[in-house]
Nucleic acid binder design. Structure first.
Ligand SMILES: Nc1ncnc2c1ncn2[C@@H]1O[C@H](COP(=O)(O)O)[C@@H](O)[C@H]1O
Ligand SMILES: [Zn+2]
Length: 213
DNA sequence: GTTCTAGAAC
DNA sequence: GTTCTAGAAC
């Protein structure tokens, strides 16, 4: 009965599209892809730089005064997809990231930067954060935001590079790192710990900005 | 990842 | 009463 001619012709359960992860999951997972596929269609206030190998964009929801994302043009989902053969790509991301940092420090020598990756990224397409360490930004609004940049959830590019050299592959424990995001709100610059909430922490960060110079 | 908002915390 | 967080979003 299931194989009647009528049933057969109605709805073929045949996958017609690539099973690439691009086609799986919620649409928001893929929002970084268009920048890499067609950087030329974006304004220079959105795409900071691009060439044949990489794209650099201003993070749309910056978590600090200066926050950009450096990405390969080539489609690579995440750090988990990196292999030793990608070490030269990492080197390129790193070199370009350092150039950005040098540039912004010329304007403001007080800026301090880190560049690296989230241990468990949310969005697809490999992206390296280049982020100033003031964390002064109206779009930094949650504990998760804070802990993703100030705990070991944030992996400096040098650590990624080292792990890739030594292990040939990168995978961080999901449970462990997702729990880190629930850590208390501690200052990344001084001994101040366990802020009651985000607004209180943000007032404290303003004080560092005024005194650390 | 963000937006929205119910209800917890103050 | 207002501020703030945290979980659903089909
Ligand atoms: N549409 C977008 N365009 C540019 N950046 C984005 C967009 N949506 C989210 N982001 C940023 O992308 C980063 C992704 O974070 P993560 O996957 O945790 O490394 C965050 O810093 C977001 O602010
Ligand atoms: Zn502090």
């Amino acid at each position: 009965m299931m194989n009647s001619a009528r049933n057969f012709s109605s709805t073929p359960k045949i996958k017609t599209r690539s099973s690439s992860s691009t086609h799986k999951g919620s649409p928001w997972l893929n929002v970084l892809l268009p920048y890499c596929e067609q950087p030329e269609i974006f304004s220079n206030k959105v795409v900071y730089y691009y060439d044949d190998g990489i794209v650099i964009i201003w993070d749309k929801y910056p978590k600090a005064k200066i926050h950009l994302l450096v990405m390969p043009r080539q489609k690579i989902d995440s750090i988990e997809d990196l292999r030793k053969q990608d070490l030269n790509l990492i080197e390129i991301l790193k070199r370009k990231g350092q150039q950005i940092i040098d540039h912004f420090k010329e304007n403001d020598p007080n800026l301090v930067f880190r560049m690296g990756f989230h241990a468990i990224p949310s969005l697809r397409q490999l992206h390296m954060h280049v982020i100033s360490q003031d964390f002064i930004s109206s779009t930094l609004s949650t504990k998760k935001h804070w802990n993703s940049f100030t705990t070991s959830f944030f992996k400096d590019v040098e650590e990624i590079e080292m792990l890739l050299k030594e292990k040939g592959q990168i995978k961080f424990d999901k449970d462990y790192y997702e729990n880190l995001l629930k850590s208390p709100l501690n200052c990344h610059l001084c001994d101040a710990k366990e802020f009651k909430n985000i607004p209180t922490l943000k007032k404290h960060l303003e004080e560092h900005l005024n005194s650390d110079r």
